[in-house]
Computed example of a mutant assay.
Amino acid sequence: MMQKSVIVLIVILALSSTCVSVVSAEDFPVLDKEVEIRQAHLKWTAAIYETSMNAVIAYIDEISEGTGTSELISLRDDFKAQTEKIGTLTTHVALNNALRQLAQITTDFRLETRKQMDEHNGRYLELVNRVETALDENQEELDSLKNTYWEKREENTLAIFDIRVNRAQTILDTLQTKGYDTGEAQKKLDEIKAKRSGLEAALAAKDNLAIAQVHLEILSLSKELARIVRDLQVMIPQEVRVKHWLHVGDRVVAWTATIIAELETLGIDVAQLQSIHSQAETDLEKAHDAFDAHNFDEAIDALNDLKTDLIKLRDAYEELVFSGVLSGDMKRTVEATSAALDDTIKDMDASI
């Protein structure tokens, strides 16, 4: 009962946030699975909020004799409209934007609730009781959504773990075939692999504290592995690393130019994007020139400048998505491009 009362008070007095999972997209399979977890969680928590909103509206309708609920109903309907889109949101950027919109709606709902409670001498303890009763009456549906969330979280979290471990193993195998000593790195990766059983047990127990603890242990080991692999990569000839990132830079700059051109045909203001992209082209050209002159240190400096440009470009894309001027396929394309840029930036951080 105490736990439920806490939930009720949060719903009524806060009604302004849902849990946001802070994640990073290392590759698209991982990105998709992380998004699915967040979708399931958001559907569950949104159902709790909507049930609570309905109870609040019913109580305000009663104490105001039908005169104080029009704004609350409008906000509730806006909330429902946003939550119905959850299944169509396929990127973290899209989900983050949806969360911001839901947070604003719930904040407005909270303020309107307080206003109506003050105007009509509402009793907060009674309101808490009404919300608690509504949650009890809808417990079966809410429990079903909760179970769906935990099932998806367990399935996808373990799948993400396997994807990342397999990816790391492939890297080590490749380095080994090229003659590099991967013994220390393999030992560290084996330590990470051994954490899977603990992660699986924590997920099965639905123990958030235990899950967080295992994740922290995996994160610590992963940082150690990254350091070891980074040291191995330093052994790779500088010329080879620079050449690789020049090829990546060529593809990224060409693709982002295509996106900007498509945005311009839609009448979108792309002046900022074009300015950043122009600088990226300049820095990439400097890197090519330095490479051709066998000045690899200077080429790496230019590639780091390019990385800075890509960070600005990624942020500009995210701002464009959040502005609400995009829709449909174009919005999804820009979101995916922003996520891909984030991947590239992180890989550049680890390699140059």
Rank of each mutant, 00 (worst) to 15 (best):
330 M>N: 06
115 K>I: 02
132 E>Q: 11
109 F>T: 10
126 E>A: 10
123 R>A: 12
218 I>T: 12
29 P>V: 01
162 D>N: 13
160 I>W: 05
23 V>K: 12
88 T>H: 14
279 Q>Y: 09
86 I>D: 04
30 V>K: 07
121 N>I: 07
197 S>H: 07
303 L>G: 01
278 S>H: 11
281 E>H: 09
241 R>F: 03
101 Q>R: 14
108 D>C: 01
154 E>C: 03
140 E>R: 09
62 E>C: 00
36 E>D: 14
66 G>R: 03
236 I>R: 00
225 L>Q: 09
66 G>E: 05
89 L>Y: 06
178 K>G: 09
102 L>A: 00
35 V>S: 00
166 N>E: 15
273 L>Q: 10
170 T>Q: 15
260 I>Y: 11
145 L>M: 06
251 R>Q: 13
221 L>G: 07
94 A>E: 10
53 M>W: 06
145 L>P: 07
86 I>K: 08
273 L>P: 08
283 D>G: 00
186 Q>T: 14
165 V>L: 09
129 N>E: 15
188 K>T: 15
213 Q>T: 13
242 V>C: 05
28 F>W: 11
253 V>Y: 01
153 R>I: 02
100 R>K: 13
294 H>K: 14
107 T>L: 05
215 H>E: 15
96 N>P: 03
111 L>G: 02
343 D>V: 08
292 D>R: 08
325 V>N: 11
263 L>G: 01
137 E>D: 11
271 A>E: 15
219 L>T: 13
144 S>K: 12
235 M>C: 03
198 G>S: 12
31 L>M: 10
37 I>N: 09
149 Y>Q: 07
314 R>C: 04
81 A>D: 15
234 V>S: 13
177 T>G: 03
258 T>F: 13
74 S>N: 13
170 T>Y: 15
81 A>C: 04
84 E>F: 01
272 Q>E: 15
251 R>W: 03
196 R>E: 12
227 R>D: 15
148 T>F: 08
45 T>K: 06
281 E>Y: 02
26 E>Q: 06
142 L>Q: 08
97 N>L: 10
335 E>S: 10
246 L>D: 01
215 H>V: 03
303 L>D: 02
247 H>Y: 12
115 K>D: 09
352 I>C: 03
309 D>C: 13
48 I>E: 12
175 L>K: 05
322 F>N: 15
230 R>G: 15
136 D>P: 00
139 Q>F: 10
227 R>G: 12
219 L>H: 13
318 E>M: 02
173 D>S: 08
278 S>I: 00
88 T>I: 00
3 Q>R: 10
228 I>F: 10
333 T>M: 08
94 A>D: 05
163 I>W: 02
213 Q>W: 01
96 N>W: 05
160 I>H: 05
64 S>M: 06
273 L>T: 10
256 T>R: 02
343 D>Q: 14
171 I>H: 06
1 M>D: 15
139 Q>G: 04
160 I>F: 09
